[in-house]
Amino acid sequence: MDIFPDFGAVGGADDLRAIVGALLTYVLIFAVLAILICAVTWAISSSSGNYQSSIRSRAGVLVAVGAAVLAGAGVAWMNFLIGVGQQL
């Protein structure tokens, strides 16, 4: 029996790549902006002795770095999956 699904019938991989790439670009831009704001706040609050603000700013930097890493990994993962899907 030669029964296989027709993967060529499903289109729109280029559109999906463009849409997801644009959304992840916005995520990366906002993550870098959050890193800058939180890092400046962390430096100012550490130098002024405000430990509560310093701890929250440090957590903000770590969350923003994590978001940037996940967004960058998301682009690579999506490109990999689209490439595998086109080879099937």
Rank of each mutant, 00 (worst) to 15 (best):
S57E: 08
G49S: 02
C38S: 07
I19P: 10
G60N: 01
A18M: 15
V10R: 13
G21N: 07
R56C: 02
S46E: 01
D14N: 13
T41L: 11
S48I: 10
Y26E: 06
A71Y: 03
G12D: 05
Y26N: 00
V65I: 14
L88P: 05
S54Y: 04
G12Q: 15
F30S: 14
F4I: 08
L62P: 08
L33S: 14
T41P: 00
V65K: 01
G85R: 15
L81S: 07
V40M: 05
G60H: 04
F80C: 11
L24R: 00
V40G: 04
R17F: 11
A39D: 07
G66E: 06
A43D: 08
A73T: 00
Y51T: 04
G60Q: 05
Y51I: 10
S53N: 04
Y26P: 06
R58F: 08
A43K: 05
A67D: 02
D14H: 12
L88K: 02
I55N: 04
L88V: 06
A34T: 15
W77N: 11
A31Q: 04
G11E: 15
T41A: 11
M78D: 01
A13C: 11
V63G: 06
I19W: 12
Q86L: 13
F7M: 12
D14S: 08
G8I: 08
V27P: 03
A76N: 12
L24C: 12
A43F: 10
A43C: 06
L36F: 06
Q86W: 07
S57A: 12
A22H: 15
V69R: 01
M78W: 01
I35F: 07
S57R: 02
F7N: 12
V40R: 01
T25H: 08
L81W: 09
G83E: 07
M1N: 07
I44C: 05
G21K: 15
V40N: 12
W42Q: 08
L23M: 13
R56F: 01
A13H: 12
Y26I: 04
D14C: 10
L62M: 06
A68R: 04
A64G: 10
M1T: 06
F4H: 11
T41R: 11
W77Y: 13
S45N: 12
V10P: 04
F80V: 15
A59H: 10
D2K: 06
F80Y: 14
G11V: 13
S47Y: 06
W42E: 09
T41H: 04
V20T: 12
A31H: 04
C38L: 07
L28E: 06
I55D: 04
V65P: 05
A13D: 15
L81K: 02
A73S: 02
V63F: 09
Y26G: 01
R56H: 01
N79P: 05
A43Q: 03
Q87H: 09
R58Y: 14
I44R: 09
P5N: 03
V84L: 13
I82S: 11
V65N: 02
V75Q: 14
G74R: 00
L36C: 09
P5L: 10
G83Y: 11
S48T: 03
G11S: 15
N50P: 00
L24Y: 02
V75F: 10
G83L: 09
A43S: 04
G11M: 14
R58H: 14
M1E: 03
